[in-house]
Design a protein around this nucleic acid. Structure first.
Lengths: 136, 136
DNA sequence: ATATCTGCAAAGGATTTGCACGAGT
DNA sequence: ACTCGTGCAAATCCTTTGCAGATAT
């Protein structure tokens, strides 16, 4: 899959790139860069953080994975690139995928005036997850 | 206003705290911590970054201001604490306030199952601002 | 062959923290 | 008086970058 996509481009199919994509597509935990690093290290023991970051950027810029900017400072990554929504816990950073949920903005004059074009396909919905909710 | 709110608590009304809130409520630009620092420095020349960060945290935790987690790495702050939505440009980090716009989630089985309670009052809607939009 | 990619280590930027002094209640 | 808050500097955390060698096409 990655191989075909890179055909004819100047980009190369390296072992690191291939394995990183495979692994991030396996998990459904929206891992941070560090977590991805730990996973990939099991297959490529001397992989570097730089390579992980560079390839996470590369893969997200080319639509293979999704970058998530949750409330905790760390960027998280989602290997499932089909458009879907994310519920992001404000307290613990936990992220849940939602596939059959639609979000509608009731357009208003204000919105039109701003000239802003919203992209609801990658919306991150804040809230509290089950665990954090029950702690209050 | 701040004075009354702090009455009876262990927290104190310092000059820095007061001025910081005043200044952030004056501007409508969703400034970063650094921008707040520059603004406040005009009135308190030797104010420190630590104080700015500590008070921004303090004020947001106590509901006086809102913390925004935009796509650029810097946290931004909004002195207008009444609930409203934010349009956040994915390219340049520019933020627009929207007051009369409502966002509705069409609830689904999936959502209920997660036990997640969404908070749409502080939603940050990604998209492209007027400027960045026209550049494409 | 040659441009891209990697690993390493060092740099970078934003934010936090320890500490001694200063200030609000 | 007694905490809480401040300023300073150093530390921390996440991420990016420069460079020389390795690798895919």
């Amino acid at each position: 899959m990655l191989k075909e996509q890179l055909q004819g481009t100047k980009y190369r199919l390296t072992n690191q790139r291939q394995i990183l994509l495979e692994e991030i597509q396996k998990v459904h935990t929206h891992p941070t860069a560090e977590e991805v690093y730990e996973i990939v290290r099991k297959r490529i023991p001397n992989v570097s953080f730089a390579t992980v970051y560079r390839n996470l950027d590369f893969l997200s810029q080319n639509g293979f994975i999704i970058k998530l900017h949750t409330k905790d400072k760390k960027t998280r990554y989602d290997g499932y690139s089909d458009p879907h929504l994310h519920l992001c816990c404000k307290k613990c950073g936990y992220v849940v995928d939602i596939f059959d949920c639609k979000c509608k903005l009731s357009a208003s004059e204000d919105l039109e005036e701003t000239g802003f074009s919203p992209d609801l396909s990658c919306l991150e919905i804040p809230g509290l997850c089950k665990k954090c909710n029950s702690k209050n």
